[in-house]
């Protein structure tokens, strides 16, 4: 059932420059995780997406933001969808 998701997450994690991928459900529980982004990070990734979405500037509920968390060593991109949140750690 989750084979397709696992496949997609693996594919993203094999993209050059990507060192970690995580996908979470709306409750912040990890659905799939690869590399540097551990399942324990799922709550924070999902929480960031939810908090950022609450900044919504009147563009409707479907307009979800993409968040970039910048570090010296790389960026984590987070994008919330209706039923999941995807986090990608890039160097």
């Amino acid at each position: 059932m989750e084979g397709h998701l696992e496949h997609q997450v693996t594919e993203i994690s094999q993209t050059p420059g990507v060192v970690g991928v995580i996908c979470t459900d709306p409750q912040g529980l990890s659905l799939a995780a690869r590399g540097t982004l551990k399942p324990e990070s799922s709550g924070l990734v999902s929480g960031l997406a939810t908090q950022a979405a609450s900044l919504n500037l009147g563009n409707g509920e479907d307009d979800k933001p993409t968040i970039v968390v910048e570090f010296d060593t790389g960026n984590i991109l987070i994008r919330g969808q209706q039923n999941s949140t995807l986090g990608i750690h890039k160097v």
């Binding site: 979470t24 409750q27 912040g28 529980l29 324990e40 990070s41 709550g43 924070l44």
Partner: peptide, 11 residues
């Protein structure tokens, strides 16, 4: 509430 965040509090 975000269950994942609650769960990570335990750490």
């Amino acid at each position: 509430s975000n269950t994942g965040m609650l769960y990570s509090l335990e750490e």
